[in-house]
């Protein structure tokens, strides 16, 4: 299937990053609970997915398929999709080890080779809604979901994008970047991530036949730990939202 130039750059980037990423973060991500984001915040705490048993679920940007495996263990019928073949290599190993059934698909979330209306839930945790262009991915998700289906996605907050200090490559408490200019962030070798403003998310979701059901600004507990600590320090994430977990319902 045709893939955009940007999706191709991101694919190459993730093929190169996959081994190191899984080595550094794989163990934290591999838990039986359903957990969101850098701080592994349980879904039960934020009440976004609820009971997934018997649901057909598509994970967009599944990486090593840690989420997909945890969902399958809870009785969901899961497909994990990723743009990187190397990430899916890790995913296959995890699926085999876990002894669960998860179908893995190699494709860009901007054009998914799966039929219309085939899922109850589409989710993405720092996956395709960050590494794909939201304006292309959200309409595709609308196509894939059944009416009444749930979209849940976790993305880096616009505030993190604004407070990122390029000079020393770290997060601080000054606004370095304009809110009106958070759309594209270079991720090296031509790869890029994308972010929308709050109002843009709401408009895109509504224009794509979704109702906005919630925005959970994830806040780690005081004793939280993470393997992503060099990205957002805990004391920052305790005071300001580093991750935005959006919940939308297909009309």
């Amino acid at each position: 299937m045709a893939i955009s130039e940007q999706a191709l750059r991101n694919r190459e980037r993730w093929d190169a990053l996959a081994d190191g990423y899984q080595q550094q973060h794989g163990p934290q991500l591999t838990v039986d609970e359903l957990v969101w984001g850098q701080w592994s915040i349980p879904d039960a705490e934020v009440g976004v997915l609820g009971d997934v048993a018997g649901r057909t679920v598509l994970e967009l940007g599944c990486g090593g398929a840690q989420w997909s495996v945890a969902l399958a263990k809870r009785g969901a019928c899961v497909i994990g999709l990723d743009n990187s073949a190397r990430q899916l290599q890790h995913a296959r190993e995890l699926v085999a080890t876990a002894g669960v059934e998860v179908q893995l698909v190699h494709a860009s979330a901007e054009s998914v080779p799966l039929p219309d209306g085939s899922f109850d839930i589409v989710l993405s945790d720092h996956g395709a809604l960050s590494w794909g262009e939201p304006g292309r991915v959200v309409p595709e998700i609308a196509r894939l979901l059944r009416r009444g289906g749930l979209l849940a996605f976790n993305v880096t907050s616009p505030l993190v994008r604004m407070c990122w200090n390029d000079e020393n490559d770290s997060l601080d408490t000054a606004l370095h970047r304009s809110y009106f200019d958070v759309y594209r962030t270079e991720e090296g070798e031509g790869a890029a991530t994308f972010a929308l403003r709050h109002g843009e998310w709401i408009r895109l979701l509504r224009d794509s036949a979704f109702e906005v059901e919630g925005l959970v600004e994830l806040r780690p507990r005081t004793e939280a730990s993470t393997t992503y600590g060099d990205f957002v320090p805990l004391d920052w994430a305790r005071r300001w939202p580093a991750e935005d977990l959006w919940k939308a319902r297909r009309r």
Binding site: H198, G214, V216
Partner: peptide, 22 residues
């Protein structure tokens, strides 16, 4: 209020979010 808190408050009171114009 924080963005997410406004949305929670709308939904809890039977309101659908239609837009946020920045």
């Amino acid at each position: 209020l924080p963005y997410g808190e406004w949305i929670r408050l709308f939904r809890r009171n039977g309101l659908e979010v239609e837009d946020l114009i920045e």
